[in-house]
């Protein structure tokens, strides 16, 4: 795909410039995003953290072409979000797994592949591959209700990975799960990221989750939704769970907390 800014496309997978988004509601305009600028490089793991109403999900939805910005510019893979969506450039993982009860796990993962017109043999191969990637091999013919919540969310990640998009957009995918399952899935997600080299944008409201996972942490604050801090994580790529007790980890967590407080999030 050619575009006007080839240089930028090489360095930046996602680029937002002077992005504004205002929702018109009955109570007057709501500034969901104000003057948001961000560059996400290839292979980055970026977390968006902030309290409710800070626009982190809205920003993710703008990248996915599910919301239209009021002004400003967003490029995904160097093209508009709409073009990126039509090129199936990203996989989107929602808060709930949203698996279809009438389809098996394999059938659910096959769903986007069917829609995109993959042939049967490729479908079967991709389903097998991504199920292995999320450690659900052998569950292909089970139905969603036969799986735990954590396994269902893993299946939904597999579904987002199935069509080989190199961007993964995740909107609080582990928000509804308990802490133990969450730790386990965080670990798995890091391993998956290391193996697949994908660029991941991850919305969360958990500080430890954001610090543990990310190479870059974007701290946001509400009313109007804006970015207050962008923290490049100095943590190594290899991250065992007990890295969370190291001084470096705690220092970043502290900075995130400061950033959240500076945004007067809980006035």
């Amino acid at each position: 795909m050619t575009n006007a800014m080839p240089q930028q496309a090489e360095t930046s997978v996602i680029s937002a410039k002077a992005l504004n988004l205002t929702f018109q509601t009955n109570d007057g305009p709501v500034h969901a995003l104000r003057d948001v600028n961000l560059e996400v490089g290839k292979g980055d793991f970026v977390s968006f953290i902030g309290p409710s109403g800070c626009g982190k999900t809205t920003f993710l939805r703008v990248m996915a072409d599910l919301e239209q910005p009021t002004s400003g510019e967003v490029l995904v893979n160097g093209v508009s979000p709409e073009a990126a969506r039509k090129a199936r450039a990203y996989g989107y993982v929602f808060q709930a797994a949203g698996l279809y009860p009438w389809r098996t796990i394999g059938g659910n993962i096959r769903l986007p592949l069917e829609i995109m017109g993959y042939d049967k043999a490729t479908q079967a191969e991709r389903v097998r591959e991504v199920l292995e990637l999320v450690e659900l091999a052998g569950f292909e013919n089970k139905y969603p209700w036969q799986l735990s919540g954590g396994m269902q969310q893993r299946a939904s990640i597999a579904r987002a990975l199935a069509f080989e998009a190199d961007i993964l957009l995740m909107d609080e995918p582990f928000g509804a799960l308990d802490e133990i399952v969450r730790d386990h899935l965080n670990e798995q997600l890091l391993a998956l990221w290391a193996r697949t080299q994908k660029t991941i944008c991850f919305v969360t409201h958990s500080i430890p989750e954001a610090v543990y996972l990310s190479t870059k942490i974007v701290v946001m604050s509400p009313r109007p939704g804006r970015i207050t801090d962008v923290i490049e994580s100095p943590l190594p790529k290899e991250r065992p769970l007990d890295i969370r007790d190291t001084p470096e980890f705690l220092e970043i967590a502290h900075r995130v907390r400061e950033g959240l407080r500076a945004g007067h999030a809980y006035d």
Binding site: A64, D65, L66, G91, Q95, L111
Partner: peptide
Amino acid sequence: PSMMQLDQMRTWNATQSQEFLRLRLP
């Protein structure tokens, strides 16, 4: 179908008939 399920179809760039047959009808 929930907004989320419809959005999901959109992220896959599904056509209206695919959305109808695979999501709305079931």
